[in-house]
Amino acid sequence: MKVFFTTILSLFVSATSFAAKNDAVMVDGSSTVFPITEAIAEDFRNPYPRVRVAIGVSGTGGGFKKFVKGETDINNASRKIKDSEMALAKKYNVSYKEIPVAYDGISVVVSKKNDWVDYISVAELKKIWQPGSTVKTWKDVRASWPDKEIRLYGPGTDSGTFDYFTKAINGKAHVSRSNFTKSEDDNVLVQGVQNDPAALAYFGFAYYQENQDKIRAVPVKANDTAKAIMPSVESINSGSYTPLSRAVYIYVNPEALKKDNVYNFVRHYLQAAPRLVKDVGYVPLPKEAYLTELKKLEQERVALGGDRLAKQD
């Protein structure tokens, strides 16, 4: 009995002696950006094997809730910070630095068995997805298409992809017809579409890239005069795949940049991104963009009173 109590007691006493978390790099946020940051963190193990990096996935908004209180060093974000979040950051006296790290192109896809869709325009997409949409068959979208029931698939309403798509297509974030099959897991959407010629879905570019043998992307036409553009590394990178390509970000707390480990991690992020972003299915920014960000980061660090080259832990 005595032994038991001493063990418990010593466990609690040791609480005070552990401050190990301070030197860890704490990242949280979007599930969309997670694969990129994870790849960087893994690569970061090579030059800095002893630095601890921990990445959580609470979603962009959930991550910001922690970030604005200074609980995390870096937040993965698939959208820009909102005004309400800025206000909170101010309240808790936390500032932030926004760094774009990659592009993502939302792909509109159909089954390989669908042989009638050649391209789709933003106006047609809006007709399909706007709230209260009356589109029931493909014919309702365009008269030359067959009179088959259209079955719709899309990401769940908590995802950044949903936010972005609805904003780009319907004009307002979070506004959409509600009678479509939703899933937070994009693989479910791929499965739903692949064997159903009458299905239509939209999700992140990475999932289209990995499943090109099962589904095909539909070229998107921004307006009547524009050309229909296929989502591809080139079209997303050059910005011609509009309006469905977007940048994804990391937000860094400048206070955390004073810590060598965090600074080294962000620095490594920008150095390794051109090489690794493609690996995980996203489109890298132009090389110069990373260099500019890197320079800004180094200046920021010097301004904070640190060395440009932080010592290795």
């Binding site: 940051t37 994870e38 963190a41 990096v53 921990a54 990445i55 959580g56 996935v57």
Partner: peptide, 9 residues
């Protein structure tokens, strides 16, 4: 409660 998704130690 805060389980991480990537942790390398």
């Amino acid at each position: 409660v805060g389980a991480m998704s990537y942790i390398a130690y």
